[in-house]
Design a protein around this nucleic acid. Sequence first.
DNA 1: CGAAAAGTTGACCGGGCGGTCAAGAACGAT
DNA 2: ATCGTTCTTGACCGCCCGGTCAACTTTTCG
Lengths: 198, 198
Amino acid sequence: MQLVDAATQCFAARGYQATSISDIVDSIGVGKGVFYWYFTSKRELFGNILTEGMTDLRLAQLAAVSDSDDPLVRIPAGIRAAVEWAAANQQLASLFEFAHRDATFGAHARRLRELLIEDAVAELRQATAMGAIPDGNADSLARCLLAVTEALTTQGIRREGRPAAEVADEVVRFCLEGIGAAEASGHRGASAAPQSAS
Amino acid sequence: MQLVDAATQCFAARGYQATSISDIVDSIGVGKGVFYWYFTSKRELFGNILTEGMTDLRLAQLAAVSDSDDPLVRIPAGIRAAVEWAAANQQLASLFEFAHRDATFGAHARRLRELLIEDAVAELRQATAMGAIPDGNADSLARCLLAVTEALTTQGIRREGRPAAEVADEVVRFCLEGIGAAEASGHRGASAAPQSAS
DNA sequence: CGAAAAGTTGACCGGGCGGTCAAGAACGAT
DNA sequence: ATCGTTCTTGACCGCCCGGTCAACTTTTCG
């Protein structure tokens, strides 16, 4: 739907509060009534974009991760999938970034984000149980993984336009060492491991 | 100034766009004119809060860091100072978080944030030059340090209310390993190093 | 005291917002 | 051609926003 694309673009560029319905409908040259023929409110549309986007990202991540049972393979795979997804869905990635600080949608966006955290926590617990990484606060470590992924993706891909694979390498390297998985995955200088392109 | 405190509180709780002048003046029970007696606009006030807050944080960090010339001492010290500062200035920390995604102030906030990045980049370059950490993209690593610090501070301190020192330990641990400084600072299990309280 | 200066009030203004709706245009079925 | 349905329009509504200002109260000081 053209309207959803236009809305996503506007929201990504200006944020939720600063985007008016007029901005959206004017950007594709239709009357304001069209918006309310297809959606019941600005709130509802944004909420749906958010929820569907997050679902899509999670599905991409689950698919990328299902090739292995080894957390030290699954974790990098999940990270790479997230970076590739963000490269392919830059507007949605931008949306996620401000949504969880937004006054209206912060709670909703944070709830969705917790799903990603929980996924990561599960992997980290598994890794700990297997002795692949030292014991630690899995929740904090999971938040570190997310934070680093978001930070380097925002800068490397959306602002500098570098290739997703290259940025993903940086994220994976920092994160694997951060969680203490250093010695387990021939990483010393392994910045160009084989991986699937998005 | 009471008005600045009230404004900071409102901005931190609701964001810039969602906070109205009435919210601010009503929250301390004064007329709207008072606001415009002391400030010229909502924009100007927010910009000042942002700039002064960031200056204060940077000064705290510079002070904490000046005890040593060793980047592997200065970097953890800078991180700890940032976490302690955020614990002592939770509203400002909250402000920083959404400011650089805001439509009106994103550019300004990001410019201020770049100063922190530059500080960190300088330390990382120094560490690399000394052979204390492996070579790498200093800019990306600096962004990782900031991102991890922000993420764990937000969750650990502002949402869970844990002590700053404890959260700082987690941040330092993850970051030092992330930048590859693992073997240089007796870190294996060193989660309670001596440090100054804020 | 009394007058100037400093500080405070809240009604008010223009404007833009999210959202509504009577009026039609476009189109397929008959 | 005619009708019913789907889709589109943009003027319009009530509301609240950032910001103004004439009137008023409080403080300062000779």
